[in-house]
Design a binder for these strands. Structure first.
Length: 286
DNA sequence: AAAGGTCACAACCGCCTTTGC
DNA sequence: GGCAAAGGCGGTTGTGACCTT
């Protein structure tokens, strides 16, 4: 039996959010905090589905969202993480402070998958494709202006595209300060094909990634002396964040990720890969 | 200048997981 | 243990700006 919809859709607004709706939602969350999404729209005076409110907040209105370019470093990290985690966008986003899963997912679909293909790499398997990449379709020199609404463009010259430096003008920051917010991320699944059954999950290939346990309780796990912070790290780049305690919750450095990734790759190259990876995974568990 | 195509991204949808009773 | 509500996730779609012809 199917579940009832999260809310009655009769009479609810859909589509793009207006500035007024954003303001209402922001002010309500400033006053009452996140959560109780189902009842939130009514209390906040919004004619929106609770899920829509949550999505709008998580992907756009949160103050800790990093606006602007995805840096080459982030670019590289996304590719690496995707090779390990597959289409687990929330997990990937969890390692990129200030970035949302939706943003990374979109960025992957529109930029990185094409980039990998152009390099002769299958974006699903991250393996070299036997066939040469399809000839490039015409490439636009286009203008993008991003003022926060819908799809706007920012000018990208051909030189910029070739040099792989995309230009994303900062999206407007609508909120200056808020009560501390955190996202719950979970590392509960250890396979790419696992998790949501509805997910096509890339190639369905099982990746022996360690089962990072639920990270709602912040944990630090160590591998060969390298500690990995597992937990709420979203506040790292918060401009408005002045909470020293939250600042102590630092995400892993790129170096630690690099090290973990290198170790993972080494295991993949060994003959007894599965056994090694299993023990590798176990070593990450507390 | 107009039409059609392309692209990027916000938002939606449906399913799964977690939580509380 | 079973059920329902709530939260969360990933895939997909809709929209509008920009580009090419």
């Amino acid at each position: 039996m199917g579940r009832a919809p999260c809310c009655s859709k009769v009479g609810l607004h859909r589509g793009s959010w207006t500035a007024r709706e954003d303001t209402l939602l922001t002010k309500y969350i400033q006053a009452h905090g996140e959560g109780h999404w189902r009842s939130l729209p009514k209390k906040a005076g919004l004619l929106r589905c609770g899920k829509s409110c949550r999505l709008r907040w998580m992907n756009y209105l949160r103050p800790d969202i990093k606006r602007g370019n995805i840096t080459p470093d982030e670019d590289d990290l996304i590719i690496r993480l995707h090779s390990l985690l597959g289409n687990r966008w929330s997990l990937i986003a969890g390692r990129l402070p200030g970035r949302t899963d939706n943003e990374i997912k979109n960025y992957w679909n529109t930029h990185l998958s094409k980039k990998l293909r152009s390099q002769g790499t299958d974006p699903n398997t991250h393996k070299k494709m036997t066939e040469p990449p399809e000839p490039k379709r015409r490439k636009n020199t286009r203008t993008r202006t991003n003022n926060g609404g819908g799809s706007k463009r920012v000018k990208i010259s051909k030189d910029q595209e070739n040099s792989n430096h995309k230009v994303h003008l900062p999206k407007p920051v609508r909120v200056t300060s808020l009560i501390s917010m955190s996202r719950n991320n979970s590392f509960e699944s250890n396979t790419v094909s696992g998790g949501s059954g509805s997910s096509s999950g890339g190639n369905g290939e099982t990746l022996p990634w360690p089962s990072f346990r639920d990270i709602r309780d912040d944990k630090v796990i160590g591998v060969d002396g390298v500690d990995f912070f597992i937990g709420d790290d979203q506040g790292q780049d918060l401009v408005a964040s002045s909470d020293p305690e939250s600042q102590s919750h630092m995400p892993p450095t790129d170096n630690s990720l690099e090290k973990l990734y290198e170790e993972y790759l080494q295991l993949l190259e060994r003959e007894d890969t599965q056994v090694q990876l299993d023990s590798f995974a176990e070593s990450l568990l507390i």
